[in-house]
Simulated scan of single mutants.
Amino acid sequence: MSAIDIGNLAYLGLLLAALGGYLFVSNRDRLGQMARHALLWALIFVAVIAGIGLWDQISQTIRPSQTLAADGTEITLPRQADGHYYARLTVNGVEIPFLVDTGATDVVLTRDAARAVGIDLGRLVFSGRAGTANGTVRTAPVRLDSVTLGGVTDHDLRAMVNDGDLDMPLLGMAYLSRFSHIEITGGALKLTR
Results as ranks from 00 to 15, higher is better:
3 A>L: 09
3 A>C: 09
7 G>D: 11
7 G>Y: 11
18 A>I: 04
18 A>C: 05
19 L>Y: 04
20 G>D: 02
24 F>W: 11
24 F>M: 12
26 S>Y: 09
26 S>F: 13
27 N>Q: 14
31 L>G: 15
37 H>C: 13
39 L>N: 11
39 L>W: 06
41 W>S: 14
46 V>P: 01
46 V>M: 10
48 V>N: 10
48 V>S: 10
52 I>Y: 15
53 G>D: 09
53 G>M: 10
54 L>G: 05
56 D>K: 14
56 D>C: 11
57 Q>A: 11
57 Q>W: 13
59 S>F: 13
65 S>D: 03
66 Q>H: 02
68 L>C: 05
68 L>T: 09
79 R>E: 13
84 H>P: 03
84 H>W: 07
87 A>M: 03
87 A>E: 00
88 R>E: 15
89 L>M: 12
91 V>A: 01
93 G>C: 12
95 E>D: 14
95 E>L: 10
95 E>Y: 11
98 F>K: 01
102 T>W: 10
104 A>C: 11
106 D>T: 06
106 D>I: 06
109 L>E: 09
115 R>L: 15
115 R>V: 11
123 R>K: 15
124 L>I: 06
124 L>T: 03
125 V>Y: 14
135 G>I: 14
137 V>P: 07
149 L>R: 00
150 G>Y: 02
150 G>T: 01
153 T>R: 03
156 D>L: 12
157 L>Y: 02
159 A>S: 09
161 V>H: 01
163 D>E: 08
165 D>H: 05
167 D>K: 04
168 M>Q: 14
169 P>I: 06
171 L>A: 00
175 Y>V: 00
176 L>P: 01
177 S>L: 11
181 H>M: 03
184 I>C: 01
184 I>M: 08
190 K>R: 14
